[in-house]
C-alpha cells in the first residue's frame, strides 16, 4: 500500500507542477465556462448545468488522454521503467498508483467547476437533483476516460501515439449508441449499450440508475485490468 501511495504522490506532484496539466485545466474551465454562460443569454434561461455537463463530456474525449498520456509512456521513454519493474513493486501497485494520481487531478478540476453550481444556487433556484446526479455521472465518466488513457499509455512509449489511440477509443465509445439504428440484431444492441451517451444522459436528467453506475465502474475495472496485464506483458517481450 505504501508503494501505491508513493507512486501516486509522485505523480500528483508532477501534475501540480507540470504545464500540461495546467493547460488542460485552463482549457477545461474556460470552455465549460463558455458552455455554462451560453444559455444564460436566452430571454428565459434555465437554471441548469446540463450544457456544462454535455460540453465537459465531449471535452474529456480530448483532455483525459492529455492527462494520462505521460503516465507510463514517459517511464518507457526515459528507461525508468527498468528501475520500476526491478523494484519489489507489484504491477498492479504501479497502475493503481498512477491511476489514483490522474483521478486526483481530475477531481481537483471538478471541484473548481463547482463554481458554476454555486452561481446557480446563489442567483437562482435550480432543481438540485440533476446537479448532484450530473456531477456523479461526470465523475464516473471522467474515471472511465482516464482508465482508457492509462491503458494506451501503458502500451506505447510514445505519448502522442498513446493520446491519439485513447481519443480514438473514447470517440468510439461516445458514438457507440448510433449502432442502435445502423447495426441490426444483437450486435447492434451490444455495441449500442456500450455507448457513453445513453448511460450519461440519465444522470444529467437527475436519474441515478444502478445500471449506469455499474456500466462506468465496469469500464474502469476493465481498462485497469488490461493496463496491469499490458505492463506485465512487457516483461515477456
Amino acid at each position: 500500500m505504501r508503494t501505491v501511495q508513493a507512486v501516486a504522490w509522485k505523480e500528483i506532484q508532477i501534475y501540480f507542477s507540470s504545464p500540461t496539466a495546467y493547460i488542460v485545466g485552463l482549457i477545461f474551465l474556460a470552455l465549460t465556462g463558455f458552455f455554462f454562460t451560453q444559455d444564460l443569454g436566452n430571454p428565459f434561461p434555465e437554471a441548469t448545468l446540463v450544457p456544462f455537463f454535455d460540453g465537459a463530456i465531449i471535452m474529456f474525449i480530448l483532455l483525459a488522454p492529455a492527462l494520462t498520456m505521460r503516465l507510463l509512456a514517459e517511464e518507457s521513454k526515459l528507461g525508468t521503467i527498468e528501475l520500476l519493474l526491478t523494484s519489489p513493486v507489484r504491477d498492479w501497485e504501479i497502475i493503481i498508483g498512477k491511476y489514483v494520481a490522474s483521478l486526483t487531478f481530475f477531481l481537483a478540476l471538478v471541484i473548481l467547476s463547482f463554481f458554476y453550481a454555486a452561481l446557480l444556487f446563489v442567483f437562482a433556484d435550480p432543481d438540485p437533483g440533476p446537479i448532484y446526479a450530473g456531477y456523479l455521472g461526470f465523475i464516473l465518466y471522467g474515471a472511465a476516460a482516464l482508465s482508457v488513457g492509462l491503458l494506451t499509455s501503458t502500451m506505447s512509449s510514445n505519448q502522442i501515439v498513446s493520446a491519439v489511440v485513447a481519443m480514438g477509443i473514447l470517440l468510439a465509445m461516445f458514438f457507440a449508441d448510433r449502432a442502435f439504428g445502423s447495426v441490426s440484431g444483437l450486435a447492434g444492441e451490444i455495441i449500442g449499450e456500450m455507448g457513453v451517451r445513453g448511460h450519461f444522459d440519465d444522470f444529467s436528467r437527475g436519474v441515478i440508475d444502478t445500471t449506469n453506475i455499474v456500466y462506468f465502474l465496469s469500464v474502469v475495472v476493465f481498462f485497469l485490468f488490461l493496463s496491469i496485464r499490458t505492463l506485465e506483458s512487457r516483461r515477456w517481450r
Binding site: K10, I14, S17, L78, G79, T80, I81, E82, L83, T86
Partner: peptide
C-alpha cells in the same frame, strides 16, 4: 540496479 542509460526522473 543501475541500468546503462542511468534512467532518472529529471524533474525531481
Amino acid at each position: 540496479y543501475l541500468p546503462e542509460t542511468v534512467p532518472l526522473y529529471t524533474d525531481m
